[in-house]
Structures are given as C-alpha cells and as structure tokens.
Amino acid sequence: MTALAFVVICMVGLSATRGFAWGAQGDVLAVRFGADGDRTRVVIDLDKTAQGRVIDAGGEGRVVLALSGVAPGRGLNGGGSGLVRSYQVTSSGGSSRVQLELARGSEIERRFLLPPGDGVSHYRYVVDLKATGTAARASTTPAPRASAPPRRAERPLIVIDAGHGGNDPGASGASAQEKQVTLAAALALKAELEKNGRYRVRLTRTDDRYVDLYRRVSIARQADADLFISLHADAGADPALRGASVYTLSEQGAGRAVREFTRGDNWHRELHLPGRDPSVDRILLDMTQRATQNRSAQFARVLLTHLEGSDHPLLRRSHRDAGLAVLLAPDVPAVLLEMGFITNPEDERLLTDERARRRLMKSVADGIDRYFREPSSPMMAAANSQAAGQP
C-alpha cells in the first residue's frame, strides 16, 4: 500500500459533510480535517487575516484557540476526524473561539496562517496536531469511527533500482564501474528477498542499459510499490574515505517533489486525489509527502542498524538527506543506499567480491524484513487495525 493510498483511506472526507461545514455568515468560513495516523491537520478557512492565540494546548482533552479579528457568525460545529472528536466555533469578545474536543491525547505540533494563493482566494489558519500517547479525558460527545486501512492481500512490493547503466557508467574504481556493482547487488538483493516468499520484487533494470531517473520513479509509482531502494557506489577524492550511507529526501527536495507533481493540470488525477477543491488536494498532497518522508526515515534507521550489526563499514554521518531525483515520489517510501566507496580499495573489494556482496545484501534484506514487521509500518498498522475490529 503506497503512502498516498494509506492517507486517502484514512481521510474522513476533507470536503465531505463530517468535519466540514460552511458558515452562513461571518469571517470563519469552514473547518476541515485531514487525518494520517498519529497526526491530524485542522484547516480553518477565513474570509480575512487573523491572529491566533492558544488558550488550551491539549492538556485537558481539548485544544482551544482564539482567532482575533474574525467573527464566527452563527458559529460552526460538528464531528472531527483522526485526533479530533468534535469541534465548535463560538464568539468570544471580538474574537472567534475554536474548541477541538480530542479523541486521543494530543498536542499542537505547529500552527501557521496561509494567505490566499495557489488558486485559493481566502486565508487558511492551519493547526497540526500530533498524538502524545496519553489518553484523552472522557467526553460526552460521541466520537465518529475513523476508517482504517484494509489488510493488504498482496505481499509487499519492493522495487530495487540499480544505479546508472548503459552510457552512464557512474563512478569508477581501480577495476570496476559503479553500474556493474549496482546491477550485481540488485540481482543479489532480489534473490535474497525472493528466498522467503514474503515479497514481490521488481528491478528498474536487469541488464546494462540506461533508465531515465524520472522513469525509475515512475516504475515504482505505477507498480504501487511499498518500498523503493536505489543502490549506488560512492566516490571521493580521498582514497582513504570509505563506508556506506543512506539518503532520504530532504525538506528542500520535498518542496521540489510537490512542484514537480503539481506542474500540470491533471496532477490530482495522477495522485488519485478528489480534484474537487485545489486547496483540499494540496493539503492531501502535503500529508502524503510527510507520511512518505516519515516512512522513508523509519526504513533508513532500520537499514543502518542492520548494516552496522553486520560490521559493514559506515560513514561517520551515515544517514543523510538530499533532493535526489530517485527520491522524489510523494507516495512511495524511498532510500538511496551508497554501498561504499568504489574509489577505496577495501570497499571496492567488498563490492566486487560475490560472497561479500551477498552478505551485504542479506543485511539489507534483513532490514527490509524488520521494517515491515515493525508495528508502525503500513502493513502492520493495517493488520492491527483489523485485529482491533475497526471497519
């Protein structure tokens, strides 16, 4: 299940009736919600700018905000979504008071005001909530049941990308080229993953050919991949420099990804978003991107733990981030693994020796196993939701 599918399934209709109502008059136009696991985004649509002040940050089972300079009209109220059980907008002096009754213990992660833009003609006050793991106080307001991701019938799909290829040899060592060792490693990892029958595996290339970087991303997205791992060999001017590292998408790269995927008119269709409200779709895309980054970082940490446990040499700062093209998919968790420095004699020996390479890929496969077994993984979350009897 891709991150986008997971987010859309967990949504409780940003533009539907639950958690969404338009005021008949006044400056507070609407309250909308988007839920993604342990986080919920609250969007308050405003007819004009406002300053927000926190009255209650969640300690008593509710979050209360005062929005100065905007009137609530006849007010709004209704059921929430995710971490929010219900909401109410009332008048408080010259301000609007927004009260969110919490379904779980939560706190404000961040809040900010968005001016009109990106096709939206009004202001939006955004509040991001995150779960704290504590129980919310009892409430007399019944909580709407949230949708849960269904158990995925298929085995997880892993897309393995052998870096470079064809007329792009990549870095060169004393006796090998990067494109050769990445393909050999990809084939070894595929064989390792297919041993236990728990995964479906696809390669972006199976021979010495060049595949466009964006095509590699498209292969993973079109296949509805659960994980994308791009294999590379590093290079450095200092031949003593050695060790593996793992890259995940940087914040700057995440912004680039959003720009790439919203460039055309039909981006919401490609990402399977509702398409009825551009501002809602942008919120969904932002949530999807964030969920994907979180899962990518989660896998990177697990992978590095297994590499370190196998005594494979690591760079001193082994978890890095960058805006690399192969990491740009907003809905597929992805990492780029630099397996070592091909310009270092010891690392080159490990990368070109079949047995050493097989041991390395066994560690990577073990990391993948651990990632999909963790309670916070999308597969385990879906299974646990069904086991708990959620719809």
Rank of each mutant, 00 (worst) to 15 (best):
A325F: 04
T305L: 06
G236V: 01
W267G: 08
S279R: 11
T288Y: 00
H272L: 12
L29T: 09
S121L: 13
L351Y: 06
P274Y: 02
L227V: 13
T90V: 07
I158F: 01
V89Q: 06
P169K: 01
L183D: 01
V98F: 01
R370Q: 11
N344R: 12
F341P: 03
I342L: 14
A176L: 10
R53Y: 09
H312Y: 08
K362P: 10
T49I: 00
V64G: 04
G26P: 15
R358C: 07
E338H: 05
G23M: 02
P274Q: 10
F6G: 05
S86T: 05
G170L: 11
R110D: 15
L304I: 14
R200P: 09
S81D: 12
R18I: 07
L189G: 06
Q99C: 11
F372R: 10
D234A: 05
D36M: 13
I158C: 00
G389D: 10
R370L: 00
A257H: 06
Q88I: 05
S92C: 11
R137C: 02
R221C: 09
F228E: 03
A356I: 02
Q180D: 13
G255C: 09
A148S: 13
G105H: 01
V181Q: 04
P72I: 00
M287K: 06
S92Q: 13
E109K: 10
G61Q: 02
N384V: 10
R39V: 03
R349T: 15
D321T: 13
R355A: 11
L314S: 10
V246D: 00
S96I: 04
R137H: 10
K179L: 08
V159E: 05
Q390N: 13
V364D: 01
P345Y: 13
A387G: 04
Y87K: 01
H312M: 04
R104L: 13
A184M: 07
A174I: 02
R145W: 07
L227Y: 11
P169M: 02
E192W: 03
L304N: 00
A66F: 08
D207C: 04
A184S: 13
T343Y: 09
W267L: 11
G52Q: 09
L314G: 11
A153P: 14
T343E: 14
L351K: 02
Q51E: 07
E192P: 02
D207P: 03
A325K: 07
R269P: 04
P378D: 08
A233F: 08
E60D: 14
E348K: 07
L83V: 10
R282H: 15
I342W: 05
V98S: 01
A146E: 15
D286P: 03
A381S: 12
H312F: 08
M11Y: 07
D56I: 00
S172A: 15
L285I: 01
R301H: 14
A3K: 00
I160D: 00
H312V: 04
Q390C: 09
S250C: 05
R290C: 10
T140M: 11
V63F: 07
S81W: 06
V127M: 05
E260Q: 15
V54G: 12
R301M: 08
R259Q: 15
S175T: 15
T248D: 02
H306Q: 14
F261M: 03
F6R: 07
L327I: 12
P375N: 04
Y87M: 05
E374I: 12
R357D: 05
R359G: 00
D168K: 14
S86M: 00
S318L: 01
V211H: 05
D265H: 08
V54A: 08
P278Y: 05
V89E: 03
T40G: 09
A291I: 06
G93Y: 14
Y87Q: 01
